[in-house]
Simulated assay, not measured.
Amino acid sequence: MTMTAPDLVGLDHYAVNVADLQRAADWYENILGFHVLQKWNTTWMVGRGNIKVGLFLRPNAKPQPDIDNTVLIQHIAFLVDGDKFARVHQFLNEKGIETEGPDDSGIAFSIFFKDADGHSLEVTAYHPAAEPLRQPGRA
């Protein structure tokens, strides 16, 4: 019997370690419009719509000094419609968030920035003519 891959329906959430739950939750609310969805003792879930982030309290955690030579999740990318990309970039600048880019990969524009704990985030918008890659045999 041949096993097939699980029929996943989406990404539920991603999790990050943070030094201060309230500071992290405030940042995600003020910058990305997320709200606290659930609070446990050392973990809070924030999000909006179908995007959620688990904030895990780790007050003694230290940032990785060299992420390019460390096995870890490098960054998380949020998708926006192309007509909203420039507005998001302007909004981040107005909020005093340092950004890199925009970069053009040939199929999408991206800007990169960091959250309150230094996690790398991206906002990306695909070019109008570009379509996401599809798996062979999938519609």
Rank of each mutant, 00 (worst) to 15 (best):
M1A: 15
M1W: 02
T2P: 07
T2C: 00
M3V: 03
T4W: 09
P6E: 03
D7I: 14
L8T: 05
V9R: 13
G10V: 12
D12W: 07
H13Q: 06
H13Y: 06
Y14K: 03
Y14Q: 07
Y14G: 06
Y14S: 14
A15Y: 08
D20C: 13
Q22E: 14
Q22H: 05
A25G: 06
D26C: 12
D26G: 10
Y28L: 03
Y28E: 03
E29V: 04
N30L: 03
L32F: 01
F34Q: 03
F34W: 03
F34H: 04
H35D: 09
V36S: 08
L37I: 07
L37W: 00
K39T: 15
N41P: 09
T42E: 14
T42C: 04
T42R: 06
T43P: 05
T43Q: 15
T43N: 12
M45S: 07
M45T: 05
M45Q: 14
V46D: 00
V46T: 08
G47N: 01
G47S: 11
G47W: 00
G49V: 04
G49E: 05
G49C: 09
G49P: 00
G49S: 15
N50G: 13
K52P: 03
K52D: 03
V53L: 00
G54L: 04
L55F: 07
L55Y: 08
F56N: 07
F56Y: 04
L57K: 03
L57H: 06
R58L: 04
R58P: 00
R58F: 01
P59N: 07
N60G: 12
N60L: 11
N60F: 10
N60H: 12
N60W: 10
A61Q: 10
K62A: 13
K62Y: 09
K62W: 11
K62C: 05
P63G: 09
Q64Y: 14
D66G: 06
I67E: 12
D68G: 13
T70S: 13
V71N: 06
V71S: 08
I73M: 13
Q74G: 10
F78V: 04
F78C: 02
V80F: 05
V80W: 03
D81C: 06
G82E: 15
D83M: 07
K84F: 06
F85W: 02
F85I: 07
A86W: 01
R87Y: 08
R87E: 10
Q90T: 04
Q90Y: 12
F91C: 04
F91L: 14
E94H: 04
K95P: 15
G96F: 10
I97C: 11
G101Y: 10
G101W: 11
D103C: 10
D104Y: 06
D104A: 13
D104L: 10
S105G: 13
G106Q: 11
G106H: 10
A108K: 15
F109Q: 14
S110G: 01
I111D: 02
K114E: 12
G118E: 03
H119S: 08
V123E: 02
V123W: 15
T124V: 08
P128S: 13
P128A: 12
P128H: 05
P128T: 08
E131L: 15
R134P: 00
R134S: 13
P136L: 02
P136H: 09
G137C: 02
R138T: 04
A139Q: 14
